[in-house]
């Protein structure tokens, strides 16, 4: 059966996907001098000289880092807990873990906004980190729980029987076995944090503006020079993170060949 329609459609879909993105990156390097277009870095220079942009970049990195670290720790613990134990507590635990995966983001953003303002917390980096931890933990848990499927808990018991403390057991037995999943979970959490706009927007206030929120504000208030440069930077970081994670787990995709 030599039907070429799927391949041709795929080609067009990838052109559809990448034409606007590539075009934007090209535009971010183009400048008009005396009516002539020429390659330039001036948009990047201009935009990264702005104080608000630098603080937005800093916020994005700080929020992503703390959200990834905290949610990876919490997600690892919760995955071990729901994998190992049964009972009412774990049922509630699992149900709560599922909520951020299924609830529309706008509802999550709204609920956290009402909650934080009810508590009288100042909106800023802190509230954004808390909000990101709230949804990243669930994703990290899913990643780690799925890798626990083949996990042999007798190793943990053996380690305990041989006199290791809980901390030693975790450090020398559990962590090395789970390291690939923990790394994948942390990378996922950072990417989720970087990818999020809706929840961040609701809880960021003035002090917690991240790069996506800054780009949104520029888009909303008309064209700002350097907007495309900034978007290109965000695109490049996403590209890097996704490529790294896919090649990191290359064998998972390649092994499945029949």
């Amino acid at each position: 059966m030599k039907n070429r329609i799927p391949q041709i459609t795929t080609l067009f879909v990838f052109l559809f996907f990448y034409f606007p993105l590539v075009w934007m990156v090209i535009q971010s390097f183009l400048g008009k001098v005396d009516g002539e277009y020429e390659w330039t870095l001036r948009w990047y220079e201009q935009v990264f000289r702005k104080r608000e942009v630098l603080s937005a970049v800093m916020n994005t990195v700080v929020v992503g880092f703390f959200a990834a670290v905290i949610s990876t720790v919490l997600g690892t613990l919760s995955a071990l807990a729901i994998f190992k134990y049964r009972g009412k507590i774990q049922e509630v635990h699992t149900a709560l873990l599922y909520i951020p995966l299924v609830v529309p983001e706008i509802l999550m953003g709204l609920s956290l906004m009402i909650f934080f303002s009810g508590l009288g917390l100042p909106f800023g980096k802190g509230t954004v980190i808390a909000a990101h931890v709230a949804f990243c933990t669930s994703y990290v848990t899913v990643v780690i729980a799925s890798s626990l499927d083949g996990f042999d808990f007798t190793l943990v018991e053996a380690s305990r029987d041989l006199g290791a403390t809980y901390f030693q057991t975790f450090r020398k037995v559990i962590f090395p076995l789970l390291r690939p999943a923990i790394c994948a979970g942390a990378l996922l959490a950072f990417t989720l944090s970087l990818d999020d706009f809706i929840v961040t927007f609701f809880v960021s206030g003035h002090g917690g503006t991240t790069l996506p929120v800054y780009i949104y504000n520029s888009l909303k208030h008309g064209k700002v020079p350097g907007l495309y440069a900034l978007s290109s930077v965000l695109l490049a970081v996403t590209f890097l993170l996704v490529t790294v994670s896919v090649f990191f787990q290359k064998n998972e995709f390649l092994d499945k060949e029949k």
Partner: peptide
């Protein structure tokens, strides 16, 4: 692997970046 990667990249790209790109087009 390559084709999947090409789907994952737009999947993970922030929506505001997509909007900025389409604004030029």
């Amino acid at each position: 692997l390559l084709l999947l990667l090409l789907v994952f990249i737009p999947f993970w790209t922030n929506m505001v970046v997509h909007i900025a790109a389409w604004k030029i087009v």
